[in-house]
């Protein structure tokens, strides 16, 4: 048997996981002294409350998981004789994977006959969700781990995500975006346009003045870079600005037709701790990232 794992940084909900028969790893974030595990410490993600807290000035942090935590997720599967496929968020944005690798090495030594397969979505939130769902479709259709890994080699680089953030103090603090000029800011309505490159790292590639232009630019990327856009989902991720996500969806459907498969997700709190409220990203199938 093959057990499919993903994590909460990929924006997938326990309900969706149950539909696909997927197991979910909860990636923690910290508010003040309190470490919160999504979907363990709460059942429903109250996105509005979370982002309101950020708007009011709270800046949560995130930290890597412990080796022990990984062992607790993975070992029961190996012990039961199952192999593992873990489709996860970008290893380029967190050092948690170094610790995971240590856990996996230990397990491999202990269960030499078991296999650990990995797909790095080279993304976060909407991008990861798009890839996870495509992979889960294949999993549901009975594809093997090897087949899904092969598929991912070709397809993961074809899922770009372009996004903008509203308040850059979150990104500046985490230092996870390169090329971000020190000067752009939500206070004057100038937003950097950021994308995830082929290494799964966030790179700022320009800026737009005003939200309307920023949305238009994201939609323009879908038009110009898109390949078989309608054969795949278009995932819109937002950090508590549903009306902006709705406007992006409206523009996308205007361009691609009302039958475009648009899925809207609210950016999970762990990633949201880094990008802050009022951000918007679009992930679609493209020629390249």
């Amino acid at each position: 048997m093959l057990t499919f794992f993903t994590d909460t940084d990929c924006d997938i909900t326990p309900k969706e996981c149950a539909e696909y028969g997927i197991k979910l790893i909860s990636m923690p974030y910290t508010v003040g002294e309190q470490v919160v595990y999504p979907y363990i410490d709460f059942q429903e993600f109250d996105a509005h409350a979370f982002y309101e807290m950020l708007r009011a000035g709270t800046m949560p942090t995130t930290s890597a998981m412990s080796e022990e935590a990984y062992l607790q997720y993975f070992e029961p599967e190996f012990a039961a004789g199952n192999d593992i496929l873990y489709v996860h968020f970008s290893s380029g944005t967190s050092n948690t994977f170094t610790i995971m690798n240590q856990a996996v090495e230990k397990l491999k030594a202990k269960y030499p006959e078991r296999k650990f397969h990995e797909v790095d979505t080279l993304g976060i939130t909407a991008l990861s969700l798009n890839v996870v769902l495509e992979a889960a479709d294949l999993y549901k259709a009975g594809k093997t781990a090897e087949e899904i890994v092969e598929w991912a080699k070709v397809e993961v680089p074809k899922f770009p995500m372009y996004f903008f953030a509203d308040d850059l103090k979150f990104f500046r603090r985490s230092g996870r975006v390169s090329g971000l000029a020190a000067t752009m800011g939500g206070l004057i309505g100038i937003r950097p346009i950021i994308y995830l490159n082929d290494e799964g790292k966030m790179v700022s590639i320009g800026k737009e003045k005003g939200r309307a232009k920023a949305i238009a630019r994201l939609v323009q990327y879908v038009e110009e870079l898109g390949e078989d856009v309608k054969a795949h989902r278009v995932v819109i991720g937002h950090s508590d600005c549903p009306e902006i996500a709705a406007e992006a969806e409206r523009q996308l459907k205007e361009k691609f037709g009302q039958d475009l498969r648009v899925l809207t997700t609210v950016v999970n709190p762990t990633i949201g701790s880094h990008c802050g409220p009022n951000g918007l990203g679009i992930c679609f199938h493209a020629k390249h990232r």
């Binding site: 000029a181 020190a182 000067t183 800011g185 206070l187 004057i188 100038i190």
Partner: peptide
């Protein structure tokens, strides 16, 4: 002034570039 202050790019080393921006 408001836009100007927000546009001071402290990551640049040449003051002329900062001022130009």
């Amino acid at each position: 002034g408001y836009y100007g202050v927000a546009s001071v790019d402290r990551s640049l080393s040449a003051v002329e570039e900062v001022i130009q921006g």
